[in-house]
Computed example of a mutant assay.
Amino acid sequence: MQEIFSPEVAVDVMLYVSTRLKNPTIHEVLKIQYFADKLHLARYGFMPSGDSYIAMEFGPVGTKTYDLIKAARGERTRFIPASFVEATTGHLQVNGADVVVLGEPDLTMLSEAQIECLDEAISEYGNMDFKKRTDISHDDAWDKGRARVNKCMSTQDIVGTLQNAGEIREHLNLQEAGCH
């Protein structure tokens, strides 16, 4: 259903996205990942980030990618794995809301399909006004996630926002809404 989350690949995705934006922000990078994951899900039947999404105030956020953002911001708590600190060190930094690129992405870590979906999401949602991008990200899956205590956005709910939802549900053999 999903790829396994890799902090190194997630950093490469953030670097790839950030190098293609005028002034990359946390919000912009995280939303582009969500939109690219949805595009990939609709076309190829899985979300390449391997991340789980939660419904935060300003839209969907990949939980592990957000922990990488925290590591790049310099946060050090027991909830941020040392591997996340290591993956961001020398590659990515976060100052306030701004994402600062310190290195180039390793494109060999990203598939052609993933790059295609990232490019499309960047083209459509990159350098977009914060409010407009937030409003677009507040889709039905986000609404359902906001109603849950843990704010979890289930894969089934995300699939439900796709034009080819029936086909993808069948492909994934999705039965019940749950948070995975």
Rank of each mutant, 00 (worst) to 15 (best):
M1L: 11
Q2V: 06
I4Q: 13
I4Y: 04
S6V: 05
E8H: 04
D12I: 03
D12M: 05
D12K: 10
V13Y: 15
L15T: 07
V17A: 03
S18H: 12
R20H: 15
N23W: 12
P24Q: 07
P24D: 05
P24I: 06
E28R: 09
I32K: 12
Q33H: 03
Q33L: 15
Y34Q: 06
D37H: 13
L39Q: 05
F46T: 11
S49P: 07
S49G: 11
G50I: 05
D51W: 05
S52L: 14
M56F: 05
E57N: 10
V61D: 07
G62E: 08
K64W: 08
K64E: 10
I69N: 00
K70R: 14
A72S: 09
G74R: 00
T77G: 02
A82P: 06
V85Y: 00
V85Q: 02
V85R: 04
Q93H: 12
D98T: 10
E104H: 10
P105W: 14
T108I: 00
T108M: 03
A113C: 01
E116Y: 15
E116N: 05
E116F: 15
C117L: 14
E120T: 09
A121R: 00
I122F: 06
S123H: 10
E124M: 08
G126M: 11
K132P: 00
R133F: 01
T134A: 10
S137W: 07
S137I: 09
S137F: 09
D140C: 01
D140A: 15
W142P: 01
A147M: 14
R148K: 15
R148W: 08
K151L: 10
S154W: 08
T155R: 13
T155I: 14
V159H: 03
V159G: 11
G160S: 09
Q163L: 11
N164F: 01
A165V: 01
G166A: 12
E167K: 05
E167A: 03
R169D: 02
R169M: 12
E170Y: 12
L172A: 09
E176H: 03
